[in-house]
Amino acid sequence: MDKVLMEQISVVLFWFALVLYVGATVLYAYQFLLRKPVAAWWARFFTGAGFLAQTISIGANSVAQGGTPLTGPNQLMLAAWALVLLYFVIEHLIKLKVYGAFLIPIAVVLMIASRFLGPAGVQPPAPNPLLDSWRVGVHVALIIFANAGFAFGAISSALYLYQGTRLKKHKTNLITRRLPSLATLQTIARRAIGLSFPVYTIGLVLGIIRALETDISGWWADPRIMLSGLVWLVFGFYLLAVYRRGVSGKTASWIAIGGLFLVIVLAVLARTVPVGFHVFGLPPRE
């Protein structure tokens, strides 16, 4: 099929998905505040339709590019896609719709950021041939899904802190009434991070294996790799602190939020710092 046409389809569906996600955000917020079952249904429908549009957009882009680009704005878009997918799975498992009001807006922000933080009008450099390995594809996919899980856990932790603070101060309001109990928020945070951590670990290990295979000197000194290691350490410490040390829910929540902060720093670094900071993003040297 015509490459230009596929690119156009991808762009149109991207904006279509974005509009649907924005609609879903408004509906989830409406459902969260006023508990209208109809709004919940439509929010879910909008999210589902947006997800479908986004999936086709990613597919069309991959056809146009001759593969799914794993660098540049596409990574944020894939992160948004993974987050929505994860949300659907978790909503199906735990039957809690309140998370939609907090996670879908993040997907919207990621999608907008993928457009505006990327190098507008500048063609990304040709990918390094070293990236041409199945391990790199799986590495990026796993890291993206794990990051979505970490985001889920951190959002749950932030809600835990809010709910806990309000309960401690003996002040309830509409938001506290709508939010799940502390125990539920804590359990979801722990499970989301607990499940994401091994995924992240495998993703990192695959990246390291590829790095060792290619034998690039000083690969470990890449700031993104070092920061990824720090993210791994923080979430590893979270699990250790929660399941071994038995730290308080408040402390654990702050650790999770700190971990997400590092993930965001990593994402911003990848967008704003020159490509050379991640050696594998470099085009081959002349």
Partner: peptide
């Protein structure tokens, strides 16, 4: 009610 806000179930 408060207990349920803390423990859910």
């Amino acid at each position: 009610e408060l207990a349920k806000k803390v423990f859910d179930n």
